[in-house]
């Protein structure tokens, strides 16, 4: 048992809930955890915001090359992945709803579906990376492009791998958290935070939102 767990004491709100000693009651601890997650997400907005800003500047600088490069992304896999992630967010929202109504079995099932959809997204994305490699689109590894647009296309694919790669890192953290919380809900671990599926939900939805903006920036620059 970690020191943090050892300092937990039972609250007066039933045997399943424990509240850390700095909090008066479970509701206060829940509010603090929710606020903490939102503050973390605010910092993430800054993190990804700077990348989107860099993308905007580069696209303004190389409009034709960005259009040409974007046509080399795989729109079928990209659109499929967007649908997969949006669907995973639906199941996550339902899992949070079930957790709040203390429907543990349903919560675990919905979290499992959410995590599996996340894994499906990763599988599709890695397939796409393999196709990008085959098409000589990986900067610093095997990049080859129409010389007229090579410089701007290099910047585009640099940003493509940077942003989708960072998104993938965030998604894998999300999948790990979903698995952890599903396990804890299933095991009925006596810890109020384990019941607070909504903070994992907030993180998951945020990662979804990042992809919502990445999708048109990377796949839809110029398809006409």
């Amino acid at each position: 048992m970690t020191p943090a767990c050892a300092s937990l004491r039972a609250a007066d709100h039933g045997p399943a809930l424990r509240v850390a000693e700095q909090f008066e009651e479970a509701s206060q601890q829940r509010a603090a955890a929710t606020l903490g997650m939102w503050i973390f997400l605010a910092t993430e907005v800054m993190f990804f915001g700077a990348l989107f800003f860099a993308y905007s500047i580069a696209r303004y600088q190389f409009p034709a090359a960005f259009a040409a490069a974007s046509r080399h992304t795989n729109i079928v896999l990209g659109t499929t992945n967007t649908a997969v992630l949006l669907t995973s967010s639906l199941f996550m929202a339902l899992a949070v709803k079930c957790a709040e109504e203390d429907l543990r079995r349903a919560t675990v099932t919905l979290l499992a579906i959410t995590g599996l959809l996340g894994l499906a997204f990763m599988g599709i994305k890695l397939t796409e990376y393999a196709l990008d490699y085959r098409d000589h689109l990986v900067p610093a590894v095997n990049f080859a492009f129409d010389p007229a647009y090579a410089r701007g296309a290099l910047v585009f694919f640099g940003l493509y791998f940077l942003t989708t790669g960072l998104h993938l890192v965030h998604l894998s953290v999300g999948i790990a958290l979903v698995a952890l919380f599903a396990w804890r809900v299933a095991r009925r671990r006596p810890n109020a935070l384990a019941d607070q599926v909504d903070i994992v939900g907030l993180y998951w939805h945020f990662v979804d939102i990042v992809w919502i903006f990445l999708y048109p920036c990377l796949y839809l620059v110029s398809r006409t």
Partner: peptide, 11 residues
């Protein structure tokens, strides 16, 4: 619009 839907309804 999609981001707002996620933030307002799901989050």
């Amino acid at each position: 619009a999609k981001a707002l839907l996620v933030v307002v309804v799901f989050m």
